[in-house]
């Protein structure tokens, strides 16, 4: 892999440890092979953007990384924890990996505050006072502290997605997964969510982002991956991708999307 200058502040990715290791991961839905021999290594603090047409397996892959989907064969190791049938490992991995969904999936019966504090209080047994303080701090970070007492239905899509990011961050994960976080948003709200994600990237979070936002991919990503028909077709720096893609399928996809 060639190292190119990213527009990100200097982070020493060269000496960083691999935090995600996938080896020959297969996933089947009945007769349909959703993932075909996916292998990759992602370093701590790295920002990876995953591209690909719909049905290419990119969402399935990141959903395997916190076991919303179970892979059928191959290995996945998250921060040294083997993803297997050991329930202790599963709990450990889920507390290391935060997830943000396309449809936000906030809990509609809970206030913004309680959406964020539910995990820390019930899973981490954090006292309510500490959890509330943490939630306010995170709401400041995503820029909507004044919405703390509202319910999800009272917020705009962009605000809801920012609450969802705060909810995931409340579990203090080492890795954040974003599954098309801006695809369900009105155009004028996309930027406010991308800004929060960019701030998060700058803070050193390891991020894997499935998105069609090419601007974000170009500016923020350390590495791009292109999935098609369940395979990892091509990977490389943004510069490599946008200026010199090698595979025909990558070229075709980029020509359609850019």
């Amino acid at each position: 892999m060639t190292t190119e200058t990213a527009s990100m502040p200097a982070r020493d990715l060269e000496s960083a440890e691999d935090i995600i290791i996938a080896e020959n991961v297969d996933k089947w839905f009945g007769d349909f092979q959703a993932l075909d021999q996916i292998s990759m290594r992602i370093k701590e603090h790295e920002i990876v953007v995953v591209l690909g047409p719909s049905g290419s397996g990119k969402s399935t892959f990141i959903r395997c990384l916190n076991r919303l989907e179970e892979h059928d064969s191959g290995r996945i190791v998250i921060d040294g924890i083997e993803m297997n049938d050991d329930v202790r490992n599963l709990n450990a991995i889920r507390s290391e990996v935060g997830m943000v969904f396309q449809q936000f999936n906030l809990f509609p019966h809970l206030s913004v505050m309680n959406n964020i504090t539910l995990g820390p209080r019930k899973v981490r047994r954090m006292p309510k006072l500490d959890a509330d303080a943490l939630a306010m701090q995170l709401l400041e970070r995503v820029g909507i502290p004044e919405q703390a007492e509202k319910y999800p239905a009272q917020l705009s899509g962009g605000q809801q997605q920012r609450v969802a990011i705060a909810r995931a961050l409340a579990m203090q994960p080492k890795i954040m997964l974003f599954d098309e976080p801006t695809s369900a948003l009105d155009p004028e709200m996309i930027k406010e969510v991308l800004d929060v994600m960019q701030e998060l990237a700058r803070s050193g979070m390891t991020m894997i982002v499935v998105t069609h936002e090419m601007g974000f991919a170009r500016e923020v990503a350390d590495r791009l991956m292109f999935f098609d028909e369940g395979s990892l077709v091509e990977e490389g720096t943004p510069q490599h991708f946008f200026e010199n893609p090698q595979e025909e399928r990558t070229k075709l996809f980029l020509s359609q999307i850019l």
Partner: peptide, 10 residues
């Protein structure tokens, strides 16, 4: 809703 609850670690 189930997925979000799982992702939060409940």
């Amino acid at each position: 809703q189930t997925e979000a609850a799982n992702a939060v670690g409940l």
